[in-house]
Every structure is written in C-alpha cells, then in structure tokens.
Simulated scan of single mutants.
Amino acid sequence: MDRGTVGSASRGRLHVEIRHHGASAVVTVTGELDHHTADLLRESLEGCLDDGYARLVVDCSRLEFMDSTGLNVLLGARLRAEAEGGGVHLAGMQPVVARVFEITGAEAVFTVHDSVDTALSD
C-alpha cells in the first residue's frame, strides 16, 4: 500500500523524499550526499525509524555522488534498523555510488537491489 509522498526536504544539493509502502519506508535521495548534506538524510532515516518503519528502502537511482560521510549515515541507519528487527535495502545505485560500496567493502553488509520494485517485493 503506497500512501504517496509523506515528506520531503531539501538542503543544498540534496533532496530527500519519503513515502510509505506497507511496512516499508521508501526514501528517495536525489543529488549529492556529502559532508554538507548528510544530516538531511540522517534526520530523514531516523524519522522513519522513530515512526516505526524498521524496513527502509533507499532509492539511490537519482543519487549523483556520495562520499564516506553519506556511507556512514547509511551504516548507522542499518545498525539501528537491524536492532529494531528491520534493515536497510539499497535500490538502483548508479555506478559512481556503487563504486563507494565496492571500494569500502560495504556492499557486503547491505542488501542491494536493481530497483525499488524488486526491493519492495523481496
């Protein structure tokens, strides 16, 4: 059950949109995720977890850049989501973003999907 967009926010070069789909929160991230914009994603993910959505699907299909600060935000959300019985699923990563996960080995600790649809059907 998709309830449409339930929240969105922008900070500089980053836009975050949240919608609910059943027991999952789908967080679409657009733009550049770095030291200057990471707090926006952190606050959005924490808000979803605070609202009881322990299964987070992060739509990375419009994410153009991510540095280690962004990776740390996702790792922190993953730890909290798993502690609450859920997890963080990454969907639609562009090659430039996927490379950050490959280089750091972080791809091994996330469930990665080709698209949001496949993440939601998992």
Rank of each mutant, 00 (worst) to 15 (best):
H89L: 15
L63H: 00
D50V: 04
R80I: 12
R13M: 12
S24R: 07
A54R: 12
E84K: 15
E102G: 07
P95R: 13
E46T: 04
H15Q: 09
D117M: 04
R13Y: 07
V112D: 08
D50H: 06
T111S: 15
V58K: 01
V97D: 15
S8E: 15
T69R: 14
T30R: 04
V116P: 01
A91T: 01
R80Q: 15
E107W: 00
E84C: 09
R3H: 11
A98L: 11
V109L: 03
D50G: 08
M66D: 03
Q94P: 03
I18Q: 09
S115M: 11
T37W: 04
T118C: 12
S115Q: 13
T30H: 15
G85F: 10
T69N: 13
G76E: 11
H35C: 06
E82D: 10
M66F: 05
A54C: 06
C48A: 15
V29S: 05
L40C: 00
F101V: 01
A54W: 15
F101I: 08
A91R: 05
G76W: 11
L41R: 03
G12V: 12
H113K: 15
L75E: 14
L45P: 01
G47W: 03
E17W: 08
A25Y: 04
S68E: 12
V88P: 14
R42Y: 00
R99T: 07
T5H: 09
H113E: 13
F65W: 03
T104Y: 06
D114R: 15
A25Q: 00
E43A: 12
V96A: 11
G76I: 11
A98R: 13
V96I: 00
G86I: 15
C48Y: 08
L33K: 04
T37P: 06
H35S: 09
A38K: 08
A77C: 13
L79Q: 14
P95E: 04
R13H: 12
T30L: 13
D51S: 11
E46V: 00
V6L: 14
S44V: 00
E64D: 13
E17D: 08
E102K: 00
S8R: 14
V29G: 08
D122A: 11
L45G: 02
T69A: 09
E43S: 14
V109G: 05
H20W: 05
A23C: 09
H15T: 13
E102D: 12
L74A: 12
A83R: 13
M66Y: 02
R42H: 13
G12A: 14
L49H: 03
A83Y: 05
D59L: 09
D2Q: 05
A38M: 03
L74P: 04
E46W: 01
T69Q: 04
L90M: 04
A108Y: 07
V88S: 06
S68P: 07
V27I: 10
G31A: 03
T111V: 08
A38Q: 12
A54I: 10
A77H: 12
L79G: 14
